[in-house]
Design a binder for these strands. Structure first.
Lengths: 203, 203
DNA sequence: TCATTTACTGAACACCATTCAGTATGTTTG
DNA sequence: CAAACATACTGAATGGTGTTCAGTAAATGA
């Protein structure tokens, strides 16, 4: 009997419907300003229904994050695929920063917002791991070929990520105001910082 | 007549009372979980009273931030005051990271939380500027004495800050889970990253 | 002493996330 | 086919939130 299969499929479709609406509204209005009621309104169901598919608002955010991490990985595979590992590393960094600046709300959901990485310990390792692995692998190749000053790919990846995330998140949180540079140059400033940093770690 | 002076003083004391209670509760419970009602309860006033002294919850947060930035600057002056500019730079970085790890809630309020830097454009330049200037000055001295690879103190400060902030905020948001290192070594890992980075930018 | 200003209250408003008794529909079983 | 059961969904209710504002009581000034 294919009924239970159909039910399962319908359930998955419903989860997708909710997730898509949530994503859209998170991006347009931000996580905090998007209420379960709003999402329910948007998909023309009652608020209670959403709780039949997601435990709470955080679980919904978690689902959206998973989606976003996959997106980032896809972008990496598209725009950071040079054969030359050093070049690829540069592409990864530039792509990461562009991604953050062009999708500020999405970046927020992925890397800055509090919930739900803190509470829920179990599953999250898998979340975003692939994108991070993409960076680690590239750095491992760089290290193998003796192109960078690093020795441990993990530590190297942490450092590179920290630099990228630091630049993007300081900008998104308007902490670059203290530097008083006009908006047009913000992006250029960040890119120059990345370039300077990369030339530092190059051997 | 000293009445208006006394009133002014009393007003300032009341603002301090509210701010102190807010800070305490922000640190203990976090910004989001601290309600105006809770603060009012703590100081034994009605919720409405708080709005006679602060426009809204964000303005209260802003006041707390101002306080926190001053604290950070004091810590810098205490623990990062070596005569040798390179040494001082290292001290600043280490102090910054320690400050973040030891005061996670405070760090959150200062650098990660959304409100209110975004909305309110006017005053915030002054906020935290002093601490940033402390870093810029140190880097300017390093550049003068040709000790680092940088040329522009502003860009240099941005990069150093980004690295520090990146490391701390990724840790606070549990994004280092992807690296699966035991807790004891987290701090050591961050310190080693800082050291490695500093040796990169040294000439 | 009396009018006015000031400080404060706390109920009310419009939201929020979440729960759950109740309903209505789809599915399985006798 | 009908009755029993399972599933999907509703929407009102609970206990919270930030914020406002009419009303009160005390301090001040005339």
């Amino acid at each position: 009997m294919g009924i239970s299969e159909r039910k399962e499929r319908e359930r998955e479709e419903m989860k997708q419907l909710i997730m898509a609406a949530a994503l859209k509204m998170f991006l347009e209005e931000g996580y905090a300003k998007t209420s379960i009621r709003n999402i329910a309104d948007a998909i023309e169901y009652s608020p209670g229904t959403i709780y039949l598919y997601y435990k709470d608002k955080d679980e919904l955010l978690f689902e959206v994050q998973r989606h976003a991490y996959n997106t980032l990985l896809q972008v990496f595979k598209e725009k950071a695929n040079s054969k030359d590992p050093l070049e690829r590393l540069a592409q990864i960094c530039k792509t990461y920063v562009s991604f953050g600046l062009e999708n500020p709300e999405l970046y927020d959901l992925m890397f800055i917002i509090r919930a739900p990485m803190n509470a829920d310990e179990s599953q999250h390792k898998s979340n975003g791991e692939d994108s991070f692995k993409y960076l680690i692998d590239t750095l491992a190749t760089c290290i193998e070929q003796d192109l960078v000053v690093f020795k441990d790919p993990n530590l190297a990846a942490l450092q590179v990520w920290a630099m990228g995330h630091g630049l993007v998140s300081l900008d998104l949180r308007c902490r670059l105001k203290v530097m008083s540079l006009d908006e047009v140059t913000t992006r250029e400033t960040l890119n120059r910082s990345i370039d300077e940093y990369l030339s530092c770690i190059r051997k």
